[in-house]
Design a protein around this nucleic acid. Structure first.
Lengths: 342, 342
DNA sequence: TAGATTTGTGTAATCGATTGCACTTTTGTG
DNA sequence: CACAAAAGTGCAATCGATTACACAAATCTA
């Protein structure tokens, strides 16, 4: 790498001080127009680029923001990240993405690693419900580094969050299944210590109760968001004496697993069993048997998360203000749950 | 954020110099064991954490590496990134990911932005064939910032790359289609100014020629890697007087589009038309009609790319050494091309 | 025109960690 | 015991940019 020009190089060439150069480049009003113009011209001519690291040291800000997600290989998280970037880039921030692959230890390691890199804030979709008790996490809170949850959150004092109304989304999906004539609706859930899954579960449950159907706790299975897990759980459900006639899943991936398993068992979708997922992953639309799902407007979610972060850093008082932004979900009805008769 | 402890705080407490503290923490052999032990203990007690920004300024290294990809929302790129991280994290590097969304201007902006953030290197999958002529890109080369291409590359002197043998992969896929009895094989290509697509095209062409079939340039269509584009191109192909009996696509996404369009036209896959894609995206396996594709071992590709980078930065001579790592692809034959009869 | 303002720059400290050089103790050698 | 070599620390500069404070020159006021 060739050496970069610094403000000292410019100062030397113009026979002025680095301080003056710095001020000129920062549009400090105390600098005369003539000098400012001269400095700017020279800087351009010399290919000057501000050294962000030096600025970071002086200002105590790195202009890097950490984003922690379970994985980037899902349209949902990828889109949230896109939204975050759209909002943060124009403000001079860079985004460092970390994946937890749903592993606790990786989540901790990523937090430490980001703090170590002096990030100005951390935006995360939490994957470990017990994170709260972890020492590294506690120290993160103590340091008052801006922390914002999106999608998967835990209710922690002083930590803002951006989510969708999971209860509403789940309620709408379940209601739709009921409207299709389904009576025994199973639910593929996930760790309900996390608000997101708890609320989806509650929305599902409420819709059943409101419709006067019997609520059966045995039809709720807690698994992680992977196709194979969806298959396994569905196998269990199908082998029950009184098998369900619909499956509402917290994840499109597990819904896909469910569909595969149901077909394997020789059952028809949606005639024998209706299926609905959550997240509107692109494949749900592409499948020959398109999958009913709930859209979470991920790009919007990302933008809003970034906005909340920007507010927090620019707020010098840093008062414990916990902001909760809640987006509205949209039910997308597709073939996997739309009976021909109706 | 609470103030962090620095080596000066430790020095003050122990009534020694910051220099000594620094040396003790860095295992400098000139420090006595007693002092070293004392410093380390005190540092731990005071929750000391090295300020990476200060170190970055002093050393001229940011320990940040930029990764530029068309999009992270594809299993292939997400996996490559995972591989890169696996290799880089243990070496103290952080990864800043940028998406180009296949837009030229974004690619340029990302490069500038990464350089501005003082990254120690850039690993990229190029999406714009004309990038070479761009001023920002030229300046990147001039600065001798380590640059490594993966997957989508251009042959530029001094720039190493990690790719798969695209020719071989395309040859194998095409050969397989021919073995299935297909005679008129269309090819959904992409910008052939990029090596990757050029080589896939050449592999496809060679397989046809080697088999004694007629090669028809009209069956080759250049599009970008999106489902909708695949549909559109396939529509054109199907409306030809002498329609193809197979489609080999450089992308799983366009292959998916092709499949959708073919079905819409009431044709059967694989009986009427065989389809094969490229990249082994997970959905190719999940579809009811699983898609034949070519695996590119993305994680391995990521790891190797990172390794080449690590070699380049650790090589102080920085001699123009252009390394070309080429991985072997694997053809995965699935339902979309496997005729029942065979 | 003397004195008060305003304007424009320079001086030097600062952010936190690293490191060549100098200097003081120890320890070793003959 | 004298002198050389080794060991252990401190001093101070450095990385590049920012900024409070000082100060000189230019402009204004009465």
């Amino acid at each position: 790498m060739t050496k970069k020009t610094t403000i000292y190089d410019i100062a030397r060439k113009l026979d002025i001080t680095a301080a003056t150069v710095s001020r000129a480049l920062n549009n400090n009003p105390k600098i005369s127009d003539a000098t400012r113009e001269l400095v700017i011209q020279t800087a351009k001519a010399m290919n000057y680029e501000q050294n962000k690291v030096a600025k970071a040291l002086k200002s105590g800000k790195s202009y890097n923001v950490g984003v922690i997600v379970p994985r980037i290989d899902s349209n949902f998280f990828a889109s949230v990240i896109t939204g975050i970037e759209e909002e943060l880039y124009p403000n001079g921030y860079h985004v460092i993405i970390c994946q937890t692959h749903d592993q606790e230890n990786l989540e901790i390691r990523n937090i430490n690693s980001l703090l170590n890199a002096q990030v100005d804030g951390i935006l995360m979709s939490i994957s470990n419900a017990k994170l709260e008790q972890n020492e590294s996490f506690k120290s993160l809170l103590r340091k008052r580094v801006p922390l914002i949850f999106f999608d998967r959150q835990k209710d922690i004092p002083g930590v803002s969050s951006v989510t969708i109304d999971d209860f509403k989304g789940a309620y709408a999906a379940t209601k739709h299944l009921i409207d299709q004539g389904c009576k025994r609706i199973a639910h593929l859930s996930n760790d309900r210590l996390l608000e997101i899954f708890k609320n989806r579960y509650l929305g599902y449950k409420q819709a059943i109760i409101d419709s006067g159907l019997e609520f059966d706790e045995n039809l709720v299975i807690e698994i992680s968001s992977r196709v194979a897990e969806g298959r396994k759980a569905t196998k269990t459900l199908l082998e029950m004496g009184n098998r369900p006639d619909a499956i509402f899943s917290t994840s499109d991936f597990t819904a896909l697993g469910a569909i595969q398993e149901i077909k394997e068992h020789g059952l028809k979708i949606p005639d024998d069993i209706c299926v609905a997922g959550f997240a509107n992953e692109p494949f749900t639309k592409f499948m020959e048997l398109s999958i009913t799902t709930v859209d979470q407007s991920p790009i919007e979610m990302g933008r809003l998360t970034a906005k909340v972060f920007l507010e927090e850093v620019s707020n010098p008082s840093r008062i414990m203000s916990q902001k909760k932004v809640i987006l509205s979900p949209e039910l997308l009805i597709r073939k996997s749950s739309l009976k021909h008769s109706s």
